[in-house]
Simulated scan of single mutants.
Amino acid sequence: MNATAGFDRVDLSGKSIIVTGGGSGMGRAAAQLIASRGASVTVVDLAEPGGNETVATITAAGGTAQFVRADITNEDDTAAMVEAAVSAYGSLDGAFNNAGIIGAGAPITEFSLADWNKTITINLTGVFVSMRAELRWMTEHGVKGSIVNTSSAAGVMAYPNLPAYVASKHGVVGLTKQVAVDYAAKGIRVNAVLPGSTMTPLAAESFADPELKAKAESAQPIGRLGEPEEIAEMAAWLLSDASSFVVGSAIAVDGGVTAA
């Protein structure tokens, strides 16, 4: 194999792929990139304006996409998003389960149960419910494909005063590994991507304070925040056949923060 052959295989032509949280940030960047690599994308989000805008940018660039409004924690909604992808594009070959929140921040002694439940439900249960719906269809129809879940650098390390977020993202890593082992023999690869601090619209609110932004940048050895497109590149690679021997991995795309 020559040095570029692997990169030549980051081709998603003919694949039907779901992207949750596709209305903005890393989800939008991933949906756009995946579509540009030839996939038909089902953009899933609760926010209709953002989801429709993502679809509009994809179709304007000559790609294929549809928007489905869905709550990823709802079993009926996730079943419907899978059905929508299959109905429109004939199959479901993969998914980027990216939707999530940072949630409230406080020491555990001051952290409410309501805030805990909200963050765990969206970040961890949402990935469980989404994957279950995706895998049910894929296994029932003998489809071999790839699923990528968004965890975080917080999936393998602690962040001050974010007990629910850190717990939820650690949970995504564990769930990813378990499901990967269970389904590898069926030809379905499951992996996780672990972004570091990335300049998404959600993060931009937190980093509106220049001092906080500078602190976040200095915490990453590379000395800057990530861009959504950088996370999208990893997701696209994991969804493609170029990563055909990657199973159950939690891959950091974090500017070096987990290595420091």
Rank of each mutant, 00 (worst) to 15 (best):
residue 77 D to S: 04
residue 43 V to L: 01
residue 10 V to H: 02
residue 14 G to F: 01
residue 54 T to V: 05
residue 25 G to N: 05
residue 85 A to D: 13
residue 53 E to K: 15
residue 79 A to N: 13
residue 71 D to A: 10
residue 46 L to P: 13
residue 52 N to T: 15
residue 22 G to I: 00
residue 53 E to H: 15
residue 12 L to M: 04
residue 81 M to V: 02
residue 94 G to R: 10
residue 71 D to M: 08
residue 33 L to M: 08
residue 81 M to D: 03
residue 63 G to C: 03
residue 14 G to P: 00
residue 38 G to A: 02
residue 63 G to V: 07
residue 67 F to H: 07
residue 58 I to Q: 01
residue 67 F to C: 03
residue 93 D to I: 05
residue 57 T to S: 14
residue 87 S to H: 09
residue 93 D to W: 09
residue 69 R to G: 09
residue 34 I to E: 07
residue 59 T to I: 07
residue 54 T to Q: 04
residue 85 A to T: 15
residue 43 V to D: 04
residue 32 Q to N: 15
residue 77 D to W: 10
residue 58 I to L: 07
residue 73 T to R: 14
residue 22 G to H: 09
residue 40 S to I: 08
residue 88 A to R: 14
residue 19 V to Y: 07
residue 21 G to C: 01
residue 35 A to G: 03
residue 24 S to M: 13
residue 79 A to K: 15
residue 51 G to C: 04
residue 24 S to W: 13
residue 60 A to W: 12
residue 25 G to H: 10
residue 11 D to L: 08
residue 33 L to D: 03
residue 38 G to F: 05
residue 13 S to K: 15
residue 64 T to S: 15
residue 22 G to M: 05
residue 80 A to G: 08
residue 59 T to W: 06
residue 69 R to A: 06
residue 44 V to Y: 00
residue 16 S to K: 09
residue 63 G to A: 00
residue 14 G to Q: 01
residue 74 N to W: 12
residue 70 A to H: 08
residue 36 S to L: 11
residue 36 S to V: 06
residue 58 I to E: 02
residue 18 I to V: 09
residue 22 G to P: 04
residue 12 L to V: 02
residue 65 A to V: 01
residue 63 G to E: 04
residue 82 V to R: 10
residue 62 G to W: 10
residue 51 G to H: 02
residue 61 A to E: 11
residue 95 A to F: 10
residue 34 I to H: 06
residue 94 G to W: 06
residue 31 A to D: 05
residue 23 G to H: 10
residue 87 S to Y: 12
residue 66 Q to G: 07
residue 72 I to H: 13
residue 95 A to R: 09
residue 68 V to M: 11
residue 50 G to K: 09
residue 36 S to R: 13
residue 79 A to Q: 13
residue 14 G to N: 06
residue 62 G to R: 12
residue 72 I to Y: 13
residue 37 R to C: 08
residue 78 T to G: 00
residue 22 G to S: 06
residue 92 L to D: 01
residue 75 E to A: 14
residue 20 T to A: 00
residue 93 D to P: 11
residue 90 G to K: 00
